[in-house]
Design a protein around this nucleic acid. Structure first.
Lengths: 202, 202
DNA sequence: CGGCTAGTGCGACAATTGTTGCGTTAGGAT
DNA sequence: ATCCTAACGCAACAATTGTCGCACTAGCCG
């Protein structure tokens, strides 16, 4: 995958790992200060007490840095919510998403912005989404077991997209003011559609 | 609104208008060649046979250029589809959206990318969405008249978001391969949810 | 026609961004 | 302990990006 990981495989030793840690910490710190706007290779390198060229060579660009931060964060295992009902789970998921987009700095936002002009960031984004959706498949399975959804197979990915997409759409594309009701409304709407058989795989 | 429009109001004369036309044409041309990646102020200015400084002063940055292109395009009046059924209308709308994201160059994509680091582009984006949704309100009204939706008031914006958001989510955020079925599936799901009262304003 | 000035052209400049070649260092291997 | 080389530091460079002051041009108005 990324150059950083390749390098780590080839010489996982103390210095390489230490510098990676320094740089990734610096990315997070810079992100916290200036948001994804003020994030620059120069700034990261300076803060990490590392030379520009090192960063350019190992991570190529800002997108590469963000991709690596995401990869490092992916090592901590995230768990989908489990509230006892499908609509509750999806609502909780949406609230989590909404918060991740509103918190400053928003890593999610930064990754999206970078993914438009960085191949590494784009790949990291795609991969992150695939993982998340795969993990959330369990929500649908549990709902079927509880009898909340018709026994016939429901396409988990479609359902999850229907539930979560509006939150992103509202905050990222429309850039509208956050609506505290949206997470629940969107989740409920998706569940109703699912109950009506909208996402049954045919 | 934009500097360009202000300027045009204050001195709408031949040269100002001519240069605006040259520059906006150049933006579209550059976009067509290099996509939203290769879009640079320098390139636009050169192609338009105009000096860099002129562009910087009137449009500030790439986002301003795109915002003005959008504004100019907004002058041609777009009409929401009218197929005779709500699900048909929403499907057609989604297919239009999907095409606008897949066509090269994608003005929509470029505007999104720019909106992350240009205030003007961000505002243009927000305004564009508000206009589109307002215009699409008629779809819901017609559906109610036809008896496709319960008589009680349905929140048009929520319904439209539920229908369209997944398409953007799929193509822009997930960057997954285009799914020719998604426009219809997503539209139908939204209609089913609406029929179940998911978007009734309370 | 002739003056006024918004808007443009021009060049010089500063700041940022990214690249390259080469010497040095540190960590892994024998 | 010693060698080997991946990875880093460094400096110099090139390219890009954005700004500023000033001259000038063209459209508007009297």
């Amino acid at each position: 995958m990324s150059d950083a990981t390749t390098a780590r495989d080839r010489r996982p030793g103390g210095r390489t790992a230490r510098i990676r840690a320094q740089v990734l910490d610096a990315v997070r710190a810079e992100l916290a200060e200036g948001g994804h706007e003020g994030l620059t290779v120069e700034g990261v390198a300076t803060r990490a007490n590392v030379h520009r060229t090192t960063v350019y060579r190992r991570w190529r660009d800002v997108g590469g840095l963000l991709a690596d931060v995401i990869a490092a964060a992916g090592e901590i295992d995230w768990q989908p919510p489990d509230t006892g009902s499908l609509s509750g789970d999806l609502t909780a998921l949406n609230e989590e998403i909404q918060e991740s987009l509103l918190v400053r700095p928003s890593l999610a936002r930064a990754l999206m912005a970078a993914s438009f002009h960085s191949e590494q960031a784009a790949r990291a984004q795609t991969r992150l989404w695939a993982d998340r959706y795969a993990q959330c498949g369990i929500l649908v399975e549990r709902a079927v077991e509880r009898g909340e959804l018709p026994a016939r197979h429901t396409d988990a990915r479609s359902l999850l997209m229907a539930a979560t997409a509006p939150v992103y759409h509202h905050l990222v594309l429309q850039r509208a003011d956050p609506d505290p009701r949206l997470p629940r409304r969107s989740a409920v709407a998706a569940v109703l559609a699912a109950a009506a058989g909208a996402f049954s795989a045919d």
